[in-house]
Design a protein around this nucleic acid. Sequence first.
DNA 1: AGCACA
Length: 490
Amino acid sequence: MASVSQPQFRYTQPPSKVLHLRNLPWECTEEELTELGKPFGRVVNTKCNVGANRNQAFIEFADLNQAIAMISYYASSSEPAQVRGKTVYLQYSNRQEIINNKTTADVAGNVLLVTIDGQDARLVSIDVLHLGCVVFALLFPGKGFFCFDMNVNGSAGSCQGNYLQLQLSASGERAHVFSAFGFVHKITTFEKTAGFQALVQFSGAETATSAKNALDGRIIPRYLLSENIAPCTLRIMYSAHTDLSVKFQSHRSRDYTNPYLSVAPSAIDGSGQFSLVLDGKKLEPESNVLLASIENMQYAVTLDVLHMVFSAFGLVQKIAMFDKNGGVQALIQYPDVQTAVVAKEALEGHCIYDGGFCKLHISYSRHTDLSIKVNNDRSRDYTIPNPAMVNQQPSILGQQSVQTMSPASHEYNGTQYASGLEQPMMPPQPSAGWASGVPAVSQSIPVQMTNHPYMPPTSMPQMTPGMMQMPGHGGVPPSGTVPHGPNQLY
DNA sequence: AGCACA
């Protein structure tokens, strides 16, 4: 009796011209499904990203015999069916046709619906979401290409339902304005019965799509989160919204297009100062110059190390190091406030070296333009090309590199990014610390500080070929006097 | 790794 009732998992399904596929990579496209079925017949419809983990799919053939041919072939083949190198499992679907209900989630728009999974999802601040969206929108605008493994954590049964719904708006059509905060226009967060949610708005569908492709399935980098927050995974879909209504700047909602929007009473601190209190942190007056103090400096932090670390967020124009209160401090100048904000948010409280060494404390300086009298081991003006470096560069090479810099590619910098984008089977290495959703990866999220997540276009004219060879740009960490290179923050 | 459309 008991052995008879196993309706779902029979080995033999009744034949159907619709095939059910599982164990697919979540990046699988409908085109890949069509290619997979094409040798056996005419594929008339496909559906991918099916199921809670979006790793299932359907293929519908024109004729039942074609579906049978495919099942039969792989039943006896020594080579399993594969998509992107991953074995996929085939069976007849228990339905006779694919029903494609194109919902808003399938239609590209300027607004994304982002889900954050994780026990502490509701502790993710709006600033982190903003920063993450901004960084990735800028990193790979128009590049929707990543090969990351499907997020496999959080089954339906174990998920507590902490959802975050983000609305993102992208500004692909204003590609020349690559201000760090030009992409994300608005964010609203809210809680529903299911959990914490938010909406993030981009200015256009292109940038929203870039952000979606870049962020979907990723773990929020640890360096963006406060300590002791459990890993949070993003899932992103398109929203039907096109424009958010943000009434106040607050810890729940932001309108980045309107910095003069009144601040919600709940976000104003007692002194009446024009300072937001967000996520328990006071926002100081922002500046393009950061003041970094280094705590517990067990290892020498050199100018080059600082340059490398801070270059991860944009062009560093000038650095000045000095001693104060028995410790080392440094002023780091970026071309614009936005880049400094991103760098500060990402780096504050983190250590350059493992073991709590060289912990960074960052505040905004009142300086806006540092006066570097002399280039030495404690201060440098990177906007002045180093003559020696320039001489090492044949001028022809410099011209080539300028010519190959297409309009579409000048929003990021660094050869590691460029080459990575050209390789379809790029390993699941988070370029800026955004790990794939695979739990094993989340244990250690490398932050490739030698890279440049964001290179403001305003700085591009100052990028000379010689500067590309400057310390910190070449990606070679200082020699091993430390347990781990500074290209990984802790 | 086991059947979609919130």
